[in-house]
């Protein structure tokens, strides 16, 4: 008898339980994008060891050995003007047969893509529209400018000295 008296309460409880905690599930979707640093976040100057290790990897698409890294750091320390040191090393790198660099005809066949690739290789970011426009216009108007000279410019630029 006692159980029958509490039955309505049990029904009421179950009824509330059925309708009070209904959870709606939403699925949000976003477009896939590559997250890359912009140049505003680069605020630290690379040490000469960092600079040369990254430069070597960028130009040869392989890592510099630890012993060579020490050698290069010592060589750079022996020259007071780092710009002189870097430029001589870059000039030596760029004349190596092992350097991985697009040919002039590859660059000319798709200048826009070459500019994007170069920004990504050296600056680890995409060019802004203004940057891309400048370089496309510049390279299309200067047939004498080779990929080697573009690489030299990027490798010796201020932004490349920062991370």
């Amino acid at each position: 008898m006692k159980y029958f008296r509490s039955l309505p309460y049990c029904f009421a409880f179950c009824f509330l339980g059925l309708f009070s905690c209904t959870e709606n599930t939403y699925v949000y979707e976003v477009n896939e994008i590559n997250v890359e640093p912009n140049n505003a976040e680069k605020d630290k100057i690379k040490a000469s060891g960092q600079y040369i290790a990254i430069l070597y990897a960028n130009l040869f698409q392989t890592a510099l050995s630890p012993s060579e890294l020490v050698d290069y750091a010592e060589l750079i320390a022996s020259i007071g003007d780092k710009q002189v040191a870097y430029e001589t090393i870059i000039a030596k790198f760029l004349s190596s047969p092992d350097v991985v660099i697009p040919s002039k005809s590859e660059m000319d066949s798709n200048v826009g893509q070459f500019v994007i690739d170069t920004y990504q290789r050296f600056y680890v970011r995409n060019p802004s529209q203004a940057e891309k426009t400048y370089f496309v216009n510049y390279l299309e108007s200067r047939p004498d400018v080779t990929p080697e000279l573009v690489y030299f410019s990027f490798a010796t630029s201020a932004e490349y000295n920062y991370y």
Partner: peptide, 19 residues
């Protein structure tokens, strides 16, 4: 041409006080 391209690359970057 290297100087011209580098001047373009540097102008915006160094404008923010970096050197």
């Amino acid at each position: 041409p290297v100087r011209e391209m580098r001047a373009f690359l540097d102008q915006a970057f160094l404008r923010d006080g970096r050197s």
